[in-house]
Computed example of a mutant assay.
Amino acid sequence: MISLALFHFLCSLTVLLLLPLHTSAGDPDPMQDFCVADLQAHTSVNGYPCKPAKSVTANDFFFDGFTKEGNTSNNLGSALTIANVNVFPALNTLGVAMGRVDLAPGGLNPPHIHPRATEAGIIIEGKVLIGFVTTANVFHSKELSVGQMFVVPKGLLHFQLNVGQGKALIYTALNSHLPGSVIVSNTLFASSPAIPEHVLTKAFQADKHTIDTIRSKFGAKA
């Protein structure tokens, strides 16, 4: 007959074996020095296949997309330049991406979510209100100026608003080579095909006219 102590040991061992052996805060760790993405490949599973090492050059590891100011002449007064694996293939499997956010006076980087990454950023120019909402529906925000840093936990709704007198510039870093961005307003009112109208009227406790008016602002048909 199995002893009580041995039974407890076997139960504990079973629980340990059922627990995940490795927990990652970002993308999986690479198993090679680099894996410059082959963007022409037909398959992609948590990353692109690697270019043959003999085809990789020094230029693959450099990106100049942040050298130019973004065009903020739009309704939001903002421009996002992203450096992810799709535009900077050397980031493939490395678990990192970056962004440049340009904001005109009063410009807004609208409420959005990064489903696969935590975001950290630093204010390079101007004065910016940073805000995010937790899963407990608690809103955290603060006005930041040059040199100050912020962090937004993975998957939480957040925004950046220029509250200064001049333009603002933010650089951000994200712990995924393809963090994704779900802009809430676009997702709700400009999806294709459209979310059923009765879903939106009930969710927002609004009438059809209000929903149709909002949709029209995004170029969507009522």
Rank of each mutant, 00 (worst) to 15 (best):
Q165P: 02
E125W: 04
V138E: 03
P111W: 14
P153V: 07
P111Q: 11
L108R: 13
P105R: 09
A117S: 11
V128F: 00
F139E: 09
A97W: 12
A90V: 14
P115T: 06
G121R: 05
I130D: 05
Q148L: 09
T135K: 10
F159W: 12
L108V: 13
I113G: 04
Q148Y: 02
V152K: 10
G121V: 06
G155W: 06
M149G: 00
Q160L: 14
K154V: 00
Q160P: 01
G131S: 13
G155N: 08
D102F: 08
L129C: 04
L157I: 15
L108F: 10
P105A: 15
V163Y: 10
V101E: 01
F150Q: 04
H114V: 05
D102S: 10
P105I: 14
Q148G: 01
M98K: 09
L156T: 01
M98S: 14
E119I: 06
I123H: 04
K127Y: 05
V133G: 00
A136E: 06
S141N: 07
P110C: 00
A97T: 10
T118D: 07
E143N: 10
P110Y: 13
L103P: 01
L108I: 14
N109E: 11
H140V: 05
K127W: 02
T134V: 00
V146D: 00
Q165G: 02
M98R: 11
K154Y: 01
V133T: 02
P89K: 14
L129F: 01
L156W: 07
K127R: 10
P105L: 15
V146M: 11
I113W: 09
A136Q: 13
T135D: 00
L129D: 07
A90W: 12
I130M: 15
V151S: 09
G107D: 06
V101A: 01
L157A: 02
R100V: 13
I113V: 15
R100K: 15
G107C: 06
H140T: 05
R116I: 02
H114Q: 07
G95H: 09
E119H: 07
D102Y: 11
L108S: 02
M149E: 03
G107M: 09
I113N: 04
L103N: 07
A97M: 12
T135A: 04
I123S: 03
V152H: 11
P115Q: 09
G147V: 04
G99Y: 10
L156E: 03
V152E: 06
G106K: 12
L156H: 05
F150W: 07
N92H: 06
L129W: 04
E143Y: 03
P105G: 06
L91M: 08
V101K: 13
